[in-house]
């Protein structure tokens, strides 16, 4: 059985020594995932703290995106996937038989690598999920759409064209719209799968700043190939290699003094 790793050093990742034990919101216990006979995740145990940013890093195929998708059961949509172990969010096993997956995905939102706005207006992109979750009154919808766009740092850029097509926005704006859409229904957790990898440096900076703002209200788990991005925005970093969790610690520690040589070799660009 793999040991559960809980580094006892906390927010913000600006110091190497300040210590605080946060509340774990997500508890991954001995999780293994199989694509058919192939074991893609091997006995992962990990506790992720509330209202901080945790980055998953590792070379392609290491399982980081697979693990991310386990957190809102997106892997259920793939044939031949089998999972052993447990994932608890707020002490509830999200793989228990009675779990409503739609409700789960409301609590655990997701932003993907490629922005994927609906082919609708900017307003409708944010309002769509709200309507699905029972928002009816126009004033309530208007207020929540505005607040979500403000929280995604997009409002000032789109307030005069809310009813124009979302597809007319730039890549960075589309990605922030997807974040607005995700936060509109007030999830507890936001999963981000390389949310800035297709963006230019300016748009990337805006997304990174946005993530640092959002962590005040949300628990964020992000997969990134950009190690400096992980260093800039995350409090904790987990390094994966061929389906195994190699190391999990405070980000500053991972990037200045990792415990494992494999982690050091990866973060210094010697392999991967």
């Amino acid at each position: 059985m793999a040991e559960t790793l809980i580094p006892k050093i906390a927010t913000p990742a600006t110091t190497l020594t300040a210590a605080k034990t946060g509340t774990p919101l997500i508890e991954i216990e001995n999780l293994s995932l199989y694509y058919g006979a192939a074991k893609a995740l091997k006995d992962i145990s990990l506790k992720l703290e509330e209202k901080v940013v945790t980055a998953f890093i590792g070379p392609s195929g290491c399982g980081k995106s697979t693990l991310l998708r386990c957190l809102n059961r997106m892997n259920d949509l793939i044939d031949n996937v089998r999972i052993d172990g447990a994932i608890k969010i707020g002490s509830h096993d999200i793989y228990a038989a009675n779990v409503d997956v739609i409700e789960l995905r409301k609590r655990v939102g997701m932003v993907f690598q490629k922005s994927n706005p609906f082919p609708k207006s900017i307003y409708e992109n944010v309002a769509y999920g709200l309507r699905l979750h029972g928002f009816q009154s126009k004033s309530e919808l208007d207020g929540t759409v505005e607040q979500s766009l403000r929280n995604a740092a997009l409002w000032d850029e789109v307030k005069d064209r809310l009813h124009s097509s979302a597809l007319g926005l730039s890549g960075g704006q589309q990605q922030r719209l997807c974040i607005a859409r995700a936060i509109a229904i007030k999830p507890e957790i936001i999963l981000m799968d390389e949310p800035a990898s297709a963006l230019d440096p300016i748009a990337t900076t805006r997304i990174e700043e946005l993530i640092l703002e959002l962590k005040k209200d949300f628990t964020i788990v992000i997969v990134t190939h950009n190690m400096q991005q992980a260093a800039r925005i995350s409090n904790y970093t987990a390094f994966f290699y061929i389906g195994e969790l190699v190391e999990f610690d405070v980000t500053a520690k991972i990037f200045t003094n990792p415990a494992k040589k494999q982690t050091e070799d990866y973060v210094t660009g010697r392999f991967g």
Partner: peptide
């Protein structure tokens, strides 16, 4: 030094 080292990791 500690603050600087952490900032340096951010490229």
């Amino acid at each position: 030094d500690e603050m600087a080292i952490v900032l340096l990791t951010k490229a």
